[in-house]
């Protein structure tokens, strides 16, 4: 069983620091906020799953640094953002593996959906100083694919309702306790 943490930022700027000594899942929800998160994987064999889900209206950024300070540590990071209007959104995501940390897995997947003409940027950095590491990174900035909208609409689902389904699917993980993030769920309706 993993330890589960929830973070909900609502129109604020915050810094977070974590030292992970047991398997941990962090669900981080952010409404129009900037945050800086630093996580140290201190103990051997621990696993981190980090889910960042973000709705942006202004000019915000998200900095995440995951430091693999012990061997056989694993990190899986999923950052999903929706940039509304002509706002600016920047992600700086660093996965760091020290020379002394062998057998690590350091993965990150980043996506920002621009709902209109916003400016988004993702820096998906992997700073790996050890040869015995599995590491992947990906970044996507764009809109929901037309093919996806066509499929939903071809079943009679209106454009607005299709967007609602896509936004919920993109921003709310299946396993979250929804009552803990009600303001975020409400905010999706305003996009």
């Amino acid at each position: 069983m993993s330890k589960i943490l929830y973070i909900l930022d609502n129109n604020e700027k915050k810094d977070y620091q974590y030292s992970i000594k047991e398997d941990t899942i962090i669900y981080h929800f952010s409404i129009n906020s900037s945050s800086k998160v630093s996580i140290n994987l201190d103990s051997e064999n621990v696993e981190l799953k980090y889910y960042y889900n973000n709705i942006n209206y202004d000019n915000n950024q998200f900095n995440l640094e995951v430091n693999h300070l012990a061997s056989n540590t694993k990190s899986y990071v999923f950052n999903h953002g929706v940039n509304v209007g002509s706002s600016k959104l920047n992600y700086f995501i660093n996965g760091v593996v020290l020379k002394t940390s062998s057998g690590c897995i350091c993965d990150q997947e980043n996506q920002i959906i621009n709902m209109s003409n916003g400016k988004s940027n993702i820096s998906p950095n992997l700073l790996i100083d050890n040869y015995d590491v599995i590491s992947n990174h990906s970044a996507y900035i764009g809109k929901f694919r037309d093919e996806v909208l066509f499929y939903l609409m071809s079943r009679g689902i209106s454009r607005n309702e299709s967007y609602r389904l896509l936004l919920n699917g993109f921003l709310i993980n299946n396993d979250v306790e929804k009552e803990r993030i009600l303001p975020f769920i409400e905010e999706i309706k305003n996009i």
Partner: peptide
Amino acid sequence: FLCMQDPTVIDGVSNSEFIRTAKSE
């Protein structure tokens, strides 16, 4: 109804939610 040659994958949207939404629409 168009039964597609290569149905599109949509991550995050569950099959049941999709079909139920389509039915109610």
